[in-house]
Amino acid sequence: MFLFDNHPDLPNLLAEKAKAGAQVRILLGDPESEAVRQRDEEEGIGGDLAARARITRRYLEPATTTPGVEVRLHDTILYNSVYRFDDDVLVNPHVLGAPAGQNPVLHFRYLPGARAFRHYMRSFDYAWERGRPA
Rank of each mutant, 00 (worst) to 15 (best):
I26W: 06
I26V: 07
L28C: 08
L28S: 00
P31D: 09
P31R: 07
S33G: 02
S33T: 03
V36A: 07
V36N: 03
R37A: 10
R37T: 07
R39H: 11
R39L: 14
E42I: 11
E43P: 07
G44V: 08
G44Y: 12
G47I: 02
G47R: 00
G47A: 05
D48N: 14
L49G: 02
L49T: 05
A51L: 14
A53E: 10
R57G: 07
R57K: 13
R58W: 10
R58D: 10
L60Q: 00
E61N: 10
P62K: 05
T64E: 10
T64M: 13
T64A: 10
T65E: 14
P67A: 05
P67R: 04
G68E: 06
G68H: 01
E70H: 07
V71Q: 05
V71I: 06
R72Y: 03
L73P: 00
H74W: 07
I77Q: 15
I77K: 15
I77S: 13
L78N: 08
S81N: 15
S81L: 10
V82C: 02
V82W: 01
Y83N: 13
Y83L: 15
Y83R: 06
R84Q: 15
R84G: 02
F85I: 08
F85T: 07
F85Y: 13
D86E: 14
V91L: 07
N92M: 00
N92R: 06
P93H: 13
V95P: 02
V95K: 00
G97D: 09
A100H: 04
A100K: 00
N103P: 01
H107E: 11
H107M: 11
F108T: 01
R109F: 09
Y110L: 11
Y110I: 01
P112N: 12
P112R: 12
P112W: 14
G113I: 04
A114E: 15
